[in-house]
Write a protein that binds this DNA or RNA. Structure first.
Length: 806
RNA sequence: GCCGAGGUGGUGAAACGGUAAACACGCUACGUUCAGAACGUAGUGCUCUUACGGGCUUGCGGGUUCAACUCCCGCCCUCGGCACCA
């Protein structure tokens, strides 16, 4: 028999699968047995696949293959999220059209995916840069616009001077651009915004029922940042004006001694008109970036406006200050200072020598005045110096005070969020054009749906202007159009959509990828959605996963999709590190190319190693030693299937038990996305078989079935050599024989006072007395029982015997 | 500071409250070989013992239990997210 030659058999079976369209999606899935198994589609970069891709695609593919064998109708598609800056930047550098680069890269990606033996239904391939696709991305935008969920606004936004475009909040990490790492500036610009905040509550509530890792849900909850509080309106002395402050802690309001507004607040602007000092402070603050404010180590600065607000509870005058520690866009942009019970307020009061009043008793009954930061009591305690609240715990006091303020008419309960609307326009070429027209007469007019898609014009230069204008603004034939409403002179919107647009609905398109009349046929949407298993990275917790949920909810509200939540279950992949245990990067030179690995070891070995290297969610290094071990396993399997003498008589009761147990374990591992333990169970079975001179063909059949999702090429070859003439991937998944499992002998540890003193092997289902008798006969047990009295016997049937002695 | 996830051999890791370290890597010895590679056999948490066997061991300290990696309380450390969010 020939040596294990993965190159040969893998090419052969990949061709076979393609020729027989084995992974074509069933046209009419059984509604009770459908599985939509999806992995995040890639951005087809010029670098080709990374071994990290190999890990995540293999895992998802194993799940898809497993569920097919379990009898599910599976949708397992693939496509390309191809709009974005890297293609555009390469286009600028090499003078090639981004579409051409995309074409080149997707071809390469697809070849690599095929060579890994991934079971995608390629007939449903999609590409976000295809006008037939982005027509519908634009259509969704128009629905958002019509519902008032897309609006134009001129606000200071995050601007990356290196990418020369505006960014969404979610794309800024620690003050830097998520893509290029450059420091982000604040720049006021005309923007298209999506009103994701309108869905804040639904985005929050929907998380409860999702089968997602808790940490991802928590990141989203945190990002949405709901807080319930009250807006308190204070009168301003000698003025008809008022100032409204948001707080979650009105219980401490007897201790309020000042008010602070953000530099952007109207009141500040108003005062600045005839107060040079305030004007200078505002000007200075506006020139600081968020980063600079952080670097100042949170030292409190500020300026007094000369005005006073009245605290209704005490009748005291509270000076109104302006300070940049107050955030303009959170709450009302104004806070009421309670320096005894908020550390920031305390620091501010100390800096500017403002009065501090204690209204909550400190630990150990401390009622002295608050003079040190350690005394600032923020969380628990009973009220004091607070009239009708005295003695109440703070949570109860909060409710009472809210009721009081609402009754008195100067308070209004409100809910605020840290989530902000989505800055949706980019000043770059390679993205979906926003399908709107600016008409001098009619204002902003949507492009009629019949005229979609608005395709990207051919340009000679993709170079971003850097002025905040899109490069499309320079293409006059494209920009100048007649207004769809009045037919007068009008101009197209020249901003494009962000990278995230096309991926915010792509899972819907896979259900009916070439529909020309709708996003997808509602019947097909209903057949397949929601996505049952969605696999991807943790880095999208507040980007793609939040945007995607938002769009899906909007589409649900307009009746375009059947469920509000798009992704029922989510698996998060861990990082694949370089051989040195560091993150793979070109600059470190530790990048492993999956092509090289496949060429060297074969796709099955790569798949087995990717599965076996550790838990799916964990990060682990791609090491030569590790993959060599997986290669050894494949070679041993080859010898088992192809060289070991076969004889059905070799299947003893013990071996049959081992086979049945393996079925059970591998099945459980597959259900829980634990491919490392699936592989180790198969290794154990292989070890068992190798101890014999011959192996039973029926056991090999089962083995090939269990192996098939993980190492499909070798499994096909083995299946064929066992005399089968259909593909192993079409076979039903084996079921463990419950009778064999139940009837087996069991090995029970015998403990004395919780320490194992021996083991005994016996038939399962024995009663306690018999097991105790048998245990007493064990030599080592006898010795430990000598001169002792058994005071208690704990017997867990078929599991363990513990004798408690004195 | 706030929210979350983790901490088990030299390494990647297993383990419904029930024999901790399965499986694999690495290492040691032996076999095979002219030699190497590959392969095979045995061993491999620490420790006492010639042996039989015993003691200790899942970040640290307590607790619940016949029994704790697993549950509870308090610390320490690592990683991820948020952060002058009122």
């Amino acid at each position: 028999m020939a040596e294990y030659n993965p190159k040969e058999i893998e090419a052969k079976w990949q061709q076979y699968w393609q020729d027989n369209a084995l992974f074509r999606t069933p046209a009419k899935p059984d509604p009770k047995k459908k599985k939509y198994v999806l992995v995040e589609f890639p951005y087809p970069s010029g670098d080709g696949l990374h071994v990290g891709h190999a890990k995540i695609y293999t895992a998802t593919d194993v799940a898809a293959r497993y569920h097919r064998m379990r009898g599910y109708d599976v949708l397992h598609p693939m496509g390309w999220d191809a709009f974005g800056l890297p293609a555009e930047n390469s286009a600028i550098k090499f003078g090639v059209h981004p579409a051409e680069l995309t074409e080149r890269n997707t071809t390469k990606f697809k070849e690599q995916m095929l060579s890994l033996g991934l079971s995608y239904d390629w007939e449903r391939e999609i590409n976000t840069t295809d006008p037939d696709y982005y027509k519908w991305t634009q259509w969704i935008f128009l629905q958002l616009f019509k519902r008032g969920l897309a609006y134009e606004d001129t606000i200071p936004i995050n601007w990356c001077p290196s990418c020369k475009t505006g960014l969404a909040n979610e794309e800024v990490i620690d003050g830097h651009c998520a893509r290029c790492g450059h420091v982000v500036e604040q720049k006021p610009m005309r923007q298209w915004m999506l009103k994701i905040t309108a869905y804040a509550d639904q985005l929050l509530a929907g998380l409860d029922d999702l089968d997602w890792p808790t940490f991802i849900k928590d990141i989203q909850r945190n990002w949405i940042g709901r807080s319930e509080g009250i807006n308190i309106t204070y009168d301003i002395v000698d003025s008809t004006d008022t100032v409204t402050c948001f707080t979650t802690r009105p219980d401490t309001n007897f201790g309020a001694t000042f008010v602070v507004v953000a530099p952007e607040h109207n009141l500040a602007t108003q005062v600045a008109a005839d107060n040079k000092e305030v004007a200078a402070y505002i000007d200075q603050a506006s020139r600081k970036t968020e980063r600079q404010r952080q670097e100042e180590d949170r030292i409190k600065t500020g300026v007094f406006t000369g005005r006073y607000a009245i605290n209704q509870l005490t009748g005291k005058k509270m000076p109104i200050w302006v300070s940049d520690f107050v955030i303009g866009h959170f709450g009302t942009g104004a806070v009421v200072g309670v320096p005894g019970h908020d550390l920031r307020d305390f620091e501010f009061a100390q800096t500017f020598d403002l009065p501090i009043i204690r209204v909550v008793v400190g630990p150990d009954g401390d009622t002295t005045s608050v003079t040190r930061p350690e005394q600032v009591q923020e969380k628990t305690g009973a009220m004091m110096n607070s009239d009708f609240l005295d003695g109440l715990p703070i949570d109860e006091a909060t409710t009472r005070m809210m009721d009081h303020m609402e009754t008195e008419g100067y308070g209004e309960r409100v809910t605020t969020y840290s989530l902000r609307d989505w800055v949706f326009s980019r000043q770059r070429y390679w993205g979906e054009p926003i399908p709107l027209i600016h008409c001098q007469e009619c204002g902003i007019v949507p492009v009629p749906e019949a005229e979609l898609p608005v395709t990207l014009p051919e340009v000679t230069s993709y170079e971003p202007t850097g002025t905040g204008e899109s490069p499309l603004a320079g293409i006059s034939d494209w920009v100048n159009v007649s207004c769809p409403t009045c037919d007068g002179a009008a101009k197209r919107e020249t901003n494009t959509m962000p990278q995230w647009a096309g991926s915010s609905w792509y899972w819907i398109r896979f259900t009916d990828h070439d529909n020309t009349k709708a996003l997808a046929d509602p019947k097909k949407i209903k057949q397949w959605l929601p996505v049952d298993i969605y696999v991807g990275g943790a880095e999208h917790a507040v980007l793609h996963l939040l945007y995607g949920r938002f769009w899906n909810m909007v589409l649900h509200d307009i009746g375009a999709v059947n469920t509000a939540e798009p992704f029922t279950k989510r698996h998060i992949v861990g990082l694949v590190l370089g051989e040195d245990g560091q993150k793979m990067s070109k600059s470190r030179g530790n990048v492993v190319n999956p092509d090289d690995e496949i060429a060297k070891y074969g796709a099955d070995t790569v798949r087995i190693f990717a599965s076996f290297m550790g838990p799916f969610e964990g990060s682990a290094a791609w090491t030569t030693a590790g993959i060599t071990g997986s290669e050894r396993f494949m070679k041993r399997l080859w010898r088992l299937f192809m060289e070991m003498p076969q004889d059905e008589a070799a299947l003893t009761a013990d071996l049959n038990l081992a086979v049945q147990q393996t079925i059970k374990r591998v099945t459980e591992s597959m259900e829980h996305f634990r491919f490392n333990t699936a592989v180790s169970s198969l290794m154990e079975l292989l070890n068992t078989f190798e101890k014999d001179k011959a192996v039973a063909p029926s056991a090999l059949q089962t083995f090939a079935l269990l192996l098939s999702p993980l190492a499909p090429h070798l499994a096909e070859e083995a299946w064929q050599s066992l005399g089968n003439d259909t593909s192993v991937t079409l076979q039903p998944w084996p079921e463990a024989d419950a009778e064999v499992l139940a009837g087996a002998q069991v090995t029970i540890p015998v403990q004395i006072n919780g320490k194992v003193r021996g083991t005994l092997t016996t038939d399962s289902g024995q009663d306690e007395a018999a097991v105790v008798e048998e245990a007493k006969g064990l030599e080592n047990v006898t010795r430990h029982l000598e001169g002792k009295e058994i005071v208690k016997t704990i017997y867990v049937p078929d599991k363990l015997l513990n004798l408690v002695v004195k």
